[in-house]
Design a protein around this nucleic acid. Structure first.
Lengths: 341, 341
DNA sequence: CTCATTTCTCAAAGCGCTTTGGCTACTCAC
DNA sequence: GTGAGTAGCCAAAGCGCTTTGAGAAATGAG
């Protein structure tokens, strides 16, 4: 069933039916009702591809899902997507998800944009000096960045959390508790948030004349296994750290396991603060020793990203170009006074 | 940059350029190379909406993501999606994801199908007597079901795991170890897999003249919190069960926490078998007491679903209509001989 | 009664692609 | 030298929708 058939059925022109459907004023009330009734009865739905072609609007936002054989599924991605979906649902939008090898995100993005399938793009997993920004700016399609790109002029619309401040504050707290030897379990060093978090730690330590020894830093994928390995390695170093900063509760999950296996008491022998994305599955308060965390909901960020993007497409409102969310520092039992040396 | 401009630039007709691009034989080798070169230089990409309109093919598969404010993000969904993506990547396919309230999946599906945006549909989170099947069958678009629908004639293409056999076998193992009092932490009872798993347990017990007491069964969302609550409740029942079956390692995560809090020893005081979807984050071998599981990779299922769907769209091959995967039963430390009464 | 205005409707163009059917020029066999 | 066959190209139709520009009918003002 298409417009032509429907309009023939009704003895109207395609124009009139189309207008009736899209709420234009110049259609007789009676006619409109007749059309709507027919639509209900026939179950007619306009073909989106044709609509897209005619209007240039698609009602969809595009995003790239990093994936590859062997590439672990990412909890954070799912959480964020749920937030996006929640908001998109309210506006009858959908997503076009292009899977892409993590090393070819620029290409994937270009394909997506040129396909004419999406009204807006959104990117995440930002890197330092991210090459995607240049490309996006050259396109004429609205976009929004989740995160930022260290080393690039911040002249693009973004939504980010203040990673540096979060880890600065966390480090500060540990310093106040008397800790001197720090370790950092971080994400891949090429990712923006990892760079900034490390910076936060380094800055806070520097204020006390301390240095972050690279041997006590790990940069790994954000999985619990990597957290376990990294922590095991660090615990075997000559001078064991007493304070651990962790870029995700997922990493912390592994780290805590290593700590337990080493028969150390969390919050006594060793303190730990993790960043909490408020993942459904991994609540810091549910750890055997509840974790002190810096918190910011990834899902809420998803909702907000969708809100801004959709708002822009529909040209409903203008949003602040750039948002930097503060994180909360929530103290639980995994942090305690530094043990005597 | 569109076809028209490109062809003018080259001094060729749109027909020829289109043919060159799509690998038709009736184009001079030299001409084709000239076209490809121009494409590379200009960055031209065909507009997908137009392609879709002209060919009826979109290079995309549609799926519905259940979501709503407050609806927890689902680890299983992400894992499956990763698998889908992995395969889609190989074929330059993308997904169109429609978020939908879990109670309006039929509507969401209809919208998706009628939109003309997708070549195939795929549904999951199957329910008993699932109303979506009727609708899908009435559509003229290929579809594939992940799971099955209990109570509906299985005359539709599906990929499922043998849930009943999995839980039958698991129960059998526990019976052999001498267990008599069973509990089941299951997913929502309206979901197909929950129905079948329960059936497996009931059948195995019946063979020994045992009954599954409803007080010892819980049907909840698949989150660790629900697992915790359910297990807490069950552990307070007068006659404590000695054997627990768990529909997911996510539920098991909570259940194990409850067991620990009750100071019971897993594998000694109480045995537990969980179903393992091979989630990246939640490896049964990483539990303090490694879990005995029935195993089947959700991600592998995603790969297979994509493979079948894409194969069908491209009409490359025909696949068996229906696949039922066996699960593996992997014994670890969480199962032991039943304690003396 | 006439002319201007408003209300409702329509035919047709256009979005960017694929595909049908046809055309030209060339090759080859007889 | 003729006819068949093939290689390479093109013009135009069509996919299903929106939107422009215009026309017919009804209404109102003078």
């Amino acid at each position: 069933m298409n417009l032509k058939q429907l309009s023939q059925m009704l003895g109207l022109s395609q124009t009139t039916v189309s207008r009736a459907l899209n709420g234009y004023p110049e259609v007789n009330r009676e006619t409109r009702e007749r059309v709507l009734k027919a639509v209900r009865e026939t179950g007619y739905r306009p073909n989106k591809a044709a609509q897209r072609l005619a209007t240039g609007k698609a009602g969809s936002i595009g995003l790239v899902m990093p994936t590859a054989p062997g590439h672990p599924s990412d909890l954070h991605f799912g959480e964020f997507l749920t937030g996006l979906g929640e908001e998109a649902l309210r506006h009858d939008f959908h997503f076009v998800v292009t899977p892409a090898d993590p090393n070819d995100e620029v290409g994937a993005l270009r394909r997506l944009a040129a396909s004419g399938n999406v009204d807006a793009l959104f990117i995440t997993y930002m890197r330092g000096h991210d090459p995607r920004l240049e490309m996006l700016k050259s396109l004429s399609i609205p976009f929004l960045v989740h995160g930022r790109s260290f080393g690039t002029e911040p002249d693009y619309p973004y939504l980010d959390i203040d990673n540096e401040a979060a880890f600065y504050d966390a480090t500060k707290l540990l310093l106040q508790l008397g800790h001197k030897r720090f370790a950092l379990l971080n994400g891949p060093i090429y990712l923006d948030f990892a760079i900034r978090r490390k910076k936060g730690v380094v800055t806070a330590l520097a204020e006390r004349g301390l240095m972050l020894d690279e041997a006590y830093v790990s940069h790994t994928a954000m999985t619990d296994e990597q957290g376990l390995f990294a922590m095991e390695r660090i615990l075997q170093l000559e001078k064991r750290p007493t304070a651990i900063l962790c870029s995700s509760t997922v990493l912390a999950l592994g780290a805590v396991r290593a700590i337990n296996q080493a028969k150390l008491k969390l919050g006594e022998d060793i303190s730990l603060i993790a960043h909490d994305d408020v993942l459904t599955l991994l609540k810091p308060e549910n750890f055997t020793v509840p974790l002190t965390t810096t918190r910011s909901s990834l899902r809420a960020a998803g909702v907000r990203v969708a809100e801004r993007l959709i708002g822009e497409i529909k040209q409903l409102e203008t949003f602040p170009e750039q948002e930097l969310w503060k994180t909360e520092l929530i103290v639980r039992a995994s942090t305690g006074v530094a043990p005597a040396d």
